[in-house]
Simulated scan of single mutants.
Amino acid sequence: MRDIKSYWIEAIQEIKEFQFIAQIEDEELSTINKHIKDLISDQFIETATEDGIARREKMLKLVPFADDTLESRRFKVLSRWNDNLPYTYRVLVQRLDQLCGKDGYTMELNQGEYTLKIKVELTVKRMEQEVNQMVHKMVPANLIVTVELRYRQHKELKRYTHAQLRAFRHRELREGDLKL
């Protein structure tokens, strides 16, 4: 944005009082421009500011944890924002695509055994919990639902020695079944 005094005639631009007025007006105009940009950003959950997410959290009666980041708060709001009945398999896939991305999860539905297994590529524990809550809310009660991280975490491997783990490739350690 240009300085406000650049719009004035030269005779006024040189007067000290008007220079002071221009400085104050420029600060006010930049504050107004920032508020306008924030209002535009707050229209969408993906780009919302702290205030925009706080407003939606209040509407949804969500209480963020003290150590939640803006991104995790956005994720939680997004997972609750589009709660519409009826829930179908297609709607579940759309919601998971929206939250995790198309390649951010795998889902196996075994209709014969009434099981649904979802593995998500999320590293933040609370995001995994949010997906778990959403899925349990959406799927029928007669399905056994399992939501877990897609890749094996270090805490699962620390009970083995390095000599035992050396027999496997990195991908097998991360995704495969360990038969030691």
Results as ranks from 00 to 15, higher is better:
residue 28 E to D: 12
residue 64 P to R: 13
residue 99 L to F: 08
residue 77 V to K: 01
residue 27 E to R: 14
residue 52 G to S: 05
residue 78 L to A: 00
residue 22 A to Y: 13
residue 113 E to L: 08
residue 121 E to T: 04
residue 147 V to Y: 04
residue 79 S to C: 10
residue 14 E to H: 06
residue 1 M to W: 08
residue 170 H to G: 02
residue 120 V to Q: 09
residue 160 Y to A: 05
residue 4 I to N: 07
residue 88 T to A: 06
residue 124 V to M: 07
residue 64 P to W: 07
residue 101 G to L: 01
residue 111 Q to W: 10
residue 3 D to S: 13
residue 166 R to E: 15
residue 126 R to S: 10
residue 20 F to C: 09
residue 76 K to Y: 03
residue 93 V to Q: 09
residue 22 A to G: 15
residue 168 F to M: 12
residue 166 R to G: 08
residue 49 T to W: 01
residue 51 D to T: 11
residue 81 W to G: 01
residue 96 L to N: 05
residue 48 A to K: 02
residue 53 I to Q: 00
residue 167 A to Q: 14
residue 39 L to I: 10
residue 20 F to G: 09
residue 51 D to K: 13
residue 89 Y to S: 02
residue 134 M to E: 03
residue 98 Q to M: 08
residue 30 S to A: 03
residue 150 R to H: 10
residue 44 F to S: 03
residue 3 D to F: 09
residue 140 P to G: 10
residue 50 E to G: 04
residue 99 L to H: 04
residue 59 M to K: 11
residue 71 E to H: 08
residue 162 H to T: 09
residue 13 Q to W: 06
residue 47 T to L: 04
residue 94 Q to N: 15
residue 60 L to I: 12
residue 83 D to H: 13
residue 141 A to F: 10
residue 105 Y to F: 07
residue 99 L to Y: 05
residue 172 E to D: 15
residue 108 E to T: 13
residue 90 R to L: 12
residue 10 E to H: 06
residue 135 V to G: 00
residue 157 L to V: 00
residue 62 L to T: 01
residue 16 K to Q: 11
residue 51 D to E: 13
residue 164 Q to G: 07
residue 12 I to H: 00
residue 164 Q to N: 08
residue 57 E to G: 00
residue 102 K to R: 15
residue 179 K to Q: 04
residue 179 K to M: 03
residue 87 Y to I: 11
residue 91 V to G: 05
residue 106 T to R: 11
residue 2 R to V: 14
residue 170 H to M: 05
residue 5 K to Q: 11
residue 32 I to A: 14
residue 108 E to R: 10
residue 61 K to E: 09
residue 147 V to P: 04
residue 82 N to D: 15
residue 75 F to W: 00
residue 74 R to I: 01
residue 115 T to A: 02
residue 123 T to W: 11
residue 53 I to K: 01
residue 177 D to S: 11
residue 9 I to P: 00
residue 178 L to C: 05
residue 22 A to F: 13
residue 100 C to S: 04
residue 9 I to A: 06
residue 42 D to G: 01
residue 156 E to K: 12
residue 91 V to Y: 12
residue 29 L to G: 03
residue 91 V to A: 10
residue 176 G to W: 00
residue 117 K to T: 15
residue 8 W to V: 01
residue 137 K to C: 02
residue 143 L to R: 07
residue 44 F to T: 01
residue 68 D to M: 11
residue 21 I to V: 15
residue 138 M to C: 06
residue 90 R to D: 15
residue 108 E to N: 13
residue 72 S to M: 06
residue 30 S to F: 02
